[in-house]
């Protein structure tokens, strides 16, 4: 199924294996945090380790592996790294602001509903 090369030098294989293991563990921990943390404002911190550390590990592993495989420096994974590092904060901030605005709006709505209920009903005659 897999088309791995016949052999891989040791100095290259060990960092690649180590980075793959670290990246996948961190990704798993981030998703676990997304699943089991109790509140939304805590859950938003779970995926951020996936995005920074996990992505960094996998991209570094891919860069090292292809550099060793092709016998020439392959660094175009840096593009994904730069792109993810520039965009992930923006999306995190927008989701956070959306959540804060929605919560504030719900609180306002509840407060006005309570206010309406507590007001004395107008007499109809």
């Amino acid at each position: 199924m897999m088309q791995l090369p016949e052999s891989l030098p040791l100095w290259l294989g060990i960092p690649v294996v180590f980075l793959l293991l670290a990246g996948s563990l961190v990704t798993l921990i981030g998703a676990l945090g997304l699943l089991r943390l109790p509140h939304f404002y805590q859950r938003i911190h779970g995926p951020s380790i996936t995005i920074t550390f996990g992505t960094g590990c996998f991209l570094l592993a891919s860069m090292l592996y292809f550099t060793g495989l092709e016998q020439r420096p392959i660094v175009h994974e840096l593009l994904i790294t730069a792109f993810v590092l520039l965009t992930a904060p923006v999306s995190a901030m927008l989701i956070m602001r959306a959540a804060v605005y929605r919560d504030l709006r719900n609180e306002n709505k509840k407060a006005t509903e309570n206010l309406h209920q507590s007001l004395p009903k107008p007499k109809t005659d």
Binding site: I44, H45, S48, I49, T52, F53, L85, L86, A88, P89, V90, A92, M93, M96, R97, V100
Partner: peptide, 15 residues
């Protein structure tokens, strides 16, 4: 500043 703070896990910039 917002990029750096949001990239650091554990802190999220709100506004």
């Amino acid at each position: 500043l917002s990029c750096l703070i949001n990239s650091t896990p554990g802190t999220v910039w709100v506004e």
